[in-house]
């Protein structure tokens, strides 16, 4: 016992002084609990997600036909600015024969790409709906000048605040006038996957996988439960 006491009074004290900070460092692994709120972003409802898809459908009705209606002389890379419910700028790249063909003018091109610039999405602000969303778009299509139609494929991204989604078009048939009379858009966002089917009328049908069916008004973007 006397030996232990002597040790503690001598070199032991120094050893303890070294050991204690080491112990503190080890105990430093004891992390504090978090104190700041970390609420999750609210999950979208089926209707909310369908509404987002509806806004994209409304926008493509507005912007998509530009690929076949555009006319402007003297360039091979064109852009068109939109104002109103869908605003922003899209770029058009016309080519002969396909994406690897030579550049062409709008009048001679048989294939075209319509896209938004990096970091410059279209902004959707529909009347009657308080809110806005951003749309990044990149679609291509074969052009039929005689019939005044084009068939679009491609897709893009949708964002509104912290919510983001992706979408793709499959054989979306657009014309110089009227609504797309064929083709679909697949929308993936908010935990839902849905298909928007176009039929040439002012409405399109939104089918949510594993859920219900909705009707989107292509003029306003508003969705309602299907009949």
């Amino acid at each position: 016992m006397n030996t232990i006491r002597a040790y503690l009074r001598g070199r032991g004290a120094l050893a303890l002084l070294l050991l204690i900070p080491a112990a503190l460092l080890v105990l430093g692994g004891c992390e504090s609990d978090a104190t700041a709120p970390q609420d999750p972003t609210p999950q979208l409802s089926e209707r909310d997600a369908a509404s987002q898809a509806g806004l994209i459908a409304m926008a493509i009705v507005d912007v998509g036909p530009e690929i076949i209606t555009f006319s402007e002389s003297g360039k091979t890379v064109y852009n068109r600015s939109f104002f109103g419910e869908v605003s922003g700028t899209v770029f058009l790249d016309f080519r002969l024969g396909g994406p690897s063909g030579p550049s062409a003018t709008w009048a001679t091109g048989t294939w075209a790409r319509l896209y938004t610039g990096v970091g410059e999405p279209l902004v959707i602000q529909p009347e009657g709906i308080d809110g806005s969303a951003q749309l990044g778009l990149d679609v291509t299509g074969d052009l039929n000048r005689g019939a005044g139609t084009a068939v679009l494929n491609g897709g893009g991204t949708f964002s509104s605040g912290t919510y983001t989604a992706a979408f793709t078009f499959d054989d979306l048939a657009v014309a110089t006038s009227g609504y797309p009379d064929g083709g679909t858009m697949t929308f993936t966002g908010g935990g839902f996957v849905m298909t928007v089917a176009f039929n040439g009328t002012s409405t399109a049908t939104v089918t949510v996988q594993g859920h219900g069916t909705w009707t989107v008004n292509l003029e306003t973007g508003a969705v309602t439960p299907a009949g």
Binding site: D48, I129, G131, S160, G161, Y163, G190
Partner: peptide
């Protein structure tokens, strides 16, 4: 501070 209605941002 961002406000939403039905998954669409209405102000930020």
């Amino acid at each position: 501070v961002t406000g939403y209605v039905g998954g669409v941002q209405v102000f930020s």
